[in-house]
């Protein structure tokens, strides 16, 4: 078995995932691209399990399992957030999420400087 084949596959998948995160505007599609990246990492881990003689055997596959669990947890919470965003704004376009807080009303009594003369 030539390990370079799955390794290159993983590298290309990772690149595609990065491209997808930076390209897509829909939050759900961004999450799909993130899944691509995580799967690329999984493939590297499983392949490495065969090429590297680790102190603890099969640690690569164990880690791949852990990554899958983490991905599941992440997708659950992430989609909950996306759905909450949709409820508030009726849109899941990542570009349209406002970052600044709405400016608070400035009453004259609250201005601290220059008040005490």
């Amino acid at each position: 078995m030539r390990p370079v084949i799955p390794y290159v596959t993983a590298a290309l998948l990772f690149g595609l995932g990065v491209y997808g995160v930076l390209r897509r505007r829909n939050a759900v599609l961004v999450l799909m691209a993130v899944e691509l990246m995580l799967n690329a990492v999984n493939l590297v881990l499983v392949t490495a399990d065969t090429t590297v003689k680790a102190a603890l055997p099969h640690s690569g596959q164990v880690f791949a399992l852990f990554v899958i669990v983490l991905a599941a947890a992440e997708i659950g919470v992430g989609l909950a957030i996306v759905l909450q965003l949709y409820r508030l704004r009726a849109s899941v376009t990542v570009d349209d999420v406002p970052l600044a807080e709405p400016a608070p009303a400035v009453t004259p009594a609250e201005r601290p400087e220059g008040a005490v003369r």
């Binding site: 995160v21 990542v94 570009d95 970052l99």
Partner: peptide, 12 residues
């Protein structure tokens, strides 16, 4: 305070 696109681009 970067929007997600800019932040993600920066990080990656």
């Amino acid at each position: 305070r970067a929007a997600l696109p800019r932040a993600a681009a920066g990080v990656l």
